[in-house]
Write a protein that binds this DNA or RNA. Structure first.
Lengths: 146, 146
DNA sequence: TCGTGTTGTAATATCAATGATTACATTTTT
DNA sequence: AAAAATGTAATCATTGATATTACAACACGA
């Protein structure tokens, strides 16, 4: 299975908030840039808020980013929006036969390797920050004035 | 979302076939070690066969591994059983608004980075072979005689 | 060649997660 | 009080995973 589009939508949201920081960023506005339902945006904003990455203003509306962009990594965002993340990247078949010498040892053979693969992926996610993507975006926007 | 248990089941299957290579390995036998339905085993064996990793004998029954264990990597198995793999690890929201300067550029900003993360994970999968896990299993079985 | 055991596969069913949508209570500001 | 937003619950459709039943196709031994 694929990692939920909540992840790329969240990055999109951050880019919008930072790019249009002079305007009021409502879920309606974000929904129109991402082209999804505003409720999806609100749910994701809620997860990002819970993770301490954004502040959302109830009633008056608007969202802001809580930290400098270079202090927010892809891993922070991934962990904020991937709800099942606690179960790990790999889905293990849970009940191998304990009376089979192979079945009863599958976990001890595989767990460490699978965790290592997950760790490598998360290290990679941790190495990328929103500042990196914003820099690329600004470069493009310089040549792409509307 | 998580990577399907087909992946760990497939590794389990290889371990069984190799460990019990003196016996006839039927889908029934494998199903009892993994503790899933035999049809699930047959489907996975079908995928592994299509990838050229095993041979399955129709009618008479039995399965064999097609290559030396150190020539079969986790990545080979992952690609064989992860049907959606062609779509990539990350699910992109497909229709960002082309009239928004941020929306219209999300793909060019993110694609390369997401592909890189996926590549790093696949490289890691490619670095592990069935020979590695079989070695660990044999070590355990030496101390775990039944 | 007939019977038995096995694989390949279709058809269904259940369950969980995603994403879309409607509705509305709550909150803030004017 | 009215207007504009957010937070959230409730539903729904769709998709993928896994389980299960059923059966045709196949291989081999008696």
């Amino acid at each position: 299975m694929q990692i939920s589009s909540r992840f790329t939508i969240a990055i999109h949201i951050f880019c919008c908030i930072d790019t249009f920081k002079n305007e009021k960023i409502t879920s309606e506005f974000l929904a129109s840039s991402v082209q999804v339902n505003p409720v999806i945006i609100r749910k994701i904003l809620g997860q990002l808020k819970k993770a301490g990455l954004v502040q959302v203003h109830r009633g008056s509306g608007g969202a802001e980013i809580s930290k400098p962009l270079d202090k927010i990594t892809f891993l922070d965002i991934y962990k904020a929006v991937e709800c099942v993340e606690s179960k790990g990247l790999f889905h293990f078949h849970e009940n191998p036969n304990p009376t089979c010498p192979v079945g009863r040892n599958m976990h001890s053979i595989l767990d460490e390797r699978l965790e290592h693969i997950q760790q490598v992926m998360e290290d990679e996610l941790a190495s990328m920050t929103l500042a990196d993507v914003k820099k690329d975006l600004d470069k493009i926007l310089g040549n792409d004035r509307t």
